[in-house]
Design a protein around this nucleic acid. Structure first.
Length: 806
DNA sequence: AGCACGCCGACT
DNA sequence: GTCGGCGTGCTC
């Protein structure tokens, strides 16, 4: 028997199946979707079995060394999905499969030098033999750290056959093991024994009483020790007597083990909600695929529709995937799902450790969980019998992976929905133009929720023209209206949320005398000043340097700080409103694990008046006491060189508006801007999606952007500017020759940030409607340049549906 | 990716 | 004459 294996060598030349003989001892173990260890050249690596056949045309076929898994990690559907993913995003097959699995399942490879038998090793000098452990192995990594002469000597010994290389494969993720005490005698026997030793060993007697009384046959060692106050030594002596036994058992890490979730049951649906859920349930009943867009204002009760749809699916013995944006995967959200469905829910988000994610994945894999609530990658949950896929906040950019494979979770969802013949539900108050256009065309089924569940009207939104504030002499960061509103909330003990899409203290520093602006030495971008440690930081490559005491160009001491970041706002607030307590939330304050949640909890417990943060605070938050939302600089996103800038601004402002006054208290939103007349700001004020959609669609049509045209973006980067421009130009020419006249090829142009980490970046954009050859040509381009220029450090990246052109 | 093979320049 | 630079090509 022969197995076709996709090997773990993500390179152009190895992006295909390799044939291996299945040895007799592995017959029956080698099945589709399992990982195996195979010899590849001189090394041993792993790969996925993607096909099994009787024969091969090849003469020399090596045997599979071993299996990695006991059961397949990818089922037939996921194998097919991976192939489609690789083709549609132009990535390596192995990368596609790997990205469908938790990171802990990535394999790592090490090389060792192996000592041979006595006759060979006796020919080596004693000081060399000394280097080897008692296992006779020396890690290559360790070897090359040693003296060059020693390395040479070992290499020569290997050439002469006195030593050999040995390649190890190991999984990065470890299954968590727990020591468990198993009672392997009858209760009577234990009681009898206890009575015998009671006098001499009272501690042991306590443990034995506990063991004979407990109503199960095993107990975790730690639990037993805690319950009986016994020491390790005590238990060890009982173990030696043989009345009990210690075994290692695999356990799941449960990230939510110490939480209690209040059980909830289905709420009554409003008539509007009922009319939305009805066609979805019908689709489930009829076992057909259909994609629904639920366009519902914030607070219109989409989540309850999701919950009840999932309940319906579970009752049919099927499973459900619920995707939420990473940032809104808050405890509140998890609470809602755990509360309704209890332990059937697996949760996957970036706040979990690799091991925890792996365990959550295994719960799904073993069919112990029926629902997964998770961020983007949860779309690959290994369910066998999917009943529904839901994508909440469909417009969120975090559903697009910005590294290979560059997939969009929405596309994967629809692929899986078609396979399982089940509905896909997209929900948003501000759907993307692509989605809404498809819904209008009837490709997706459009449903709307226009009423808020609690009958609350949307908060009133005020737009403040900051130019006007300037004219009246207010040069502070806060307009009069916002300042008064904030002060008012603090006095009334209500809470406020302040949004500013820039972290740090100031966006750039500038010398008043010569005009010098501090720039990153590795990127074409100005450095951001961080006041806490008086440092200048690059937000692209992480470069840090101390704030110069004077201008490095002209030695002037007149250095000014321009632009406002969250740190500066915090400082200003402390000055202007010393009585208000503030929580600042941005990458700088939430990078430590658990900080995100901790800060939100503190705010939720009303231990702070103001939550100040970057866009990470804009989504999914639901705090009843928040009655004011302020946006400090609504323009910060608007003027980015990206065709989606208006759409993003509208979405952000509309979403942020939904954060205020969600409960009993009336909410208010204040938006500060220098472009109050811009339609995406004006229409966000009145929460009018449809007029915004109509307006933006006209612009997209005029400029040939999605959803009227598809986009593909090729980014070329290299240390040498000339090389980048040259390659980009050649690619552009090649595309112009092969694609039809309908395709628009732009570039080469420099990327909006032309240099990052000492590499120049140029790009080529293709706008097209129907280009059957596009994928093939792009693939050829990748093959061509990745082959002969790879060592030249030339990098070429293709994104088939870029979400941003930065 | 890693490793071998192989073809040219700078040394004992 | 050899050591070692890294360009090229292959891995079932």
């Amino acid at each position: 028997m022969i197995a076709e294996v996709i090997v773990d060598v993500p390179a152009m030349g190895t992006d295909r199946a390799f044939d291996y003989v299945v040895p007799d001892r592995l017959h029956g173990l080698i099945v589709l979707g399992i990982r195996v260890i195979v010899p590849f050249g001189p090394r041993k690596i792993t790969g996925f079995v993607v096909a099994v056949k009787e024969d091969t045309e090849l003469k020399r076929v090596k045997p599979i060394v071993d299996v990695v898994d006991l059961s397949p990690v990818l089922n037939g559907e996921l194998l097919k999905l991976g192939k489609w993913l690789a083709e549609s995003t132009l990535c390596f097959l192995h990368s596609a499969y790997q990205s469908m699995l938790p990171a802990a399942m990535k394999m790592s490879y090490t090389k060792h030098v192996q000592l041979l038998d006595e006759t060979k090793s006796s020919q080596l000098p004693q000081e060399i033999i000394h280097l080897f452990q008692d296992t006779g192995q020396l890690a290559w990594e360790e070897l090359i750290k040693l003296d060059l002469k020693v390395v040479r000597f070992v290499q020569q010994a290997m050439d002469e056959g006195l030593l050999v290389a040995d390649y190890h494969v190991k999984s990065k993720g470890k299954k968590k093991k727990q020591k468990v005490i198993v009672r392997n005698s009858s209760r009577e026997e234990i009681v009898q024994y206890r009575n015998e030793i009671k006098e001499r060993a009272p501690k042991q007697a306590v443990v034995l009483t506990y063991l004979s009384d407990m109503n199960k046959d095993d107990i975790a060692l730690v639990e037993l020790m805690e319950a009986t106050n016994a020491s390790r030594a005590t238990i060890k002596s009982i173990l030696e007597k043989g009345w009990i036994e210690q075994v290692e058992r695999e356990v799941y890490r449960d990230p939510y083990e110490n939480r209690h979730f209040e059980r909830t049951s289905a709420l009554d649906l409003t008539s509007e909600q009922a009319s939305v859920i009805e066609p979805i349930i019908e689709t489930i009943e009829n076992k057909v695929h259909n994609t629904f867009l639920i366009h519902g204002v914030t607070g219109s009760g989409k989540t309850e529709i999701y919950l009840q749809t999932i309940e319906n699916v579970l009752n049919k013995g099927k499973e459900a995937i619920m995707l939420v944006p990473e940032i809104s995967l808050t405890p509140q959200m998890v609470q809602r799902f755990k509360g309704r469905f209890g332990s059937k829910v697996a949760v996957l988000h970036s706040g979990l450790s690799k091991g925890e994610k792996y365990d959550e994945w295994r719960k799904i894999h073993r069919n112990e969980s029926k629902i997964v609530v998770g961020a983007r990658s949860a779309i690959f949950a290994p369910f066998q019998n999917l009943g529904v896929i839901i994508i909440d906040e469909e417009h969120e950019s975090s559903y697009k992976q910005e590294e290979n494979p560059r997939y969009h979770a929405r596309d994967v969802a629809i692929y899986r929905g078609e396979y399982h013949r089940c509905p896909v539900i997209l929900g948003s108050a501000t759907p993307t133009l692509e989605t809404y256009a498809r819904a209008q065309k009837g490709v997706y089924q459009l449903t709307s929720l226009e009423e808020r569940v609690n009958q609350r009207s949307l908060p009133k939104t005020e737009i403040i023209d900051m130019r006007e504030e300037m004219r009246t002499g207010n040069r502070s960061l806060f307009s009069e209206a916002l300042f008064n509103a904030l002060k008012d909330r603090v006095e009334r003990r209500e809470q406020s949320v302040l949004l500013l899409n820039r972290r740090g203290y100031s966006t750039f520093i500038n010398c008043r005398d010569c005009g010098y602006v501090a720039q990153c030495p590795h990127c074409d971008i100005s450095l951001t000043y961080h006041k806490r440690n008086r440092q200048l930081k690059c937000h692209y490559c992480g470069h840090e340097e101390n704030l110069p005491p004077s201008c490095p160009e002209c030695s002037s001491e007149h250095i000014r700080f321009f632009g406002t970041g969250t740190q500066k706002v915090e400082e200003e607030l402390n000055k202007l409103m010393p009585e208000a307590s503030i929580i600042r939330m941005d990458v700088d304050t939430t990078s430590r694990k658990g900080m995100h949640e901790k800060l939100l909890n503190t705010f939720g417990e009303q231990k702070a008046d103001i939550l100040l943060g970057t866009q990470m605070i804009a989504k999914g938050l639901d705090f009843p006491n928040v009655t004011l939302v302020g946006v400090l600089a609504a323009d910060s996103m608007l003027h980015l060189p990206d065709f989606r800038a208006s759409e993003r601004t509208f979405q952000l402002l509309t979403q942020v508006g939904g954060r205020a006054g969600r409960h009993e208290l009336e909410g208010e939103v204040i938006i500060q801007t220098y472009s109050p007349e811009h339609y995406s700001i004006e229409l966000a004020q009145t929460h009018e999606f449809l007029p915004f959609y109509a307006r933006e669609m006209k612009i997209r049509k005029l400029h040939q952007y999605p959803p009227f045209y598809y986009l593909a973006l090729i980014t070329v980067s290299h240390e040498e500017l000339m090389e980048v421009v040259d390659v980009c130009e050649k690619i552009s020419h090649q595309l112009k020759e092969i694609l039809t006249d309908q395709a628009v090829i732009l570039g080469p142009v420099a990327s909006p940030i032309p240099r990052v980490k000492d590499r120049y970046r140029y790009q080529c954009m293709i706008k097209y409607k129907n280009e059957p050859n596009l994928r093939r040509v792009l693939h050829e381009i990748l093959v061509h340049y990745k082959k002969d220029k790879q060592k030249n450090s030339l990098m070429i990246n293709v994104d088939m549906h870029p979400q941003t052109i930065m």
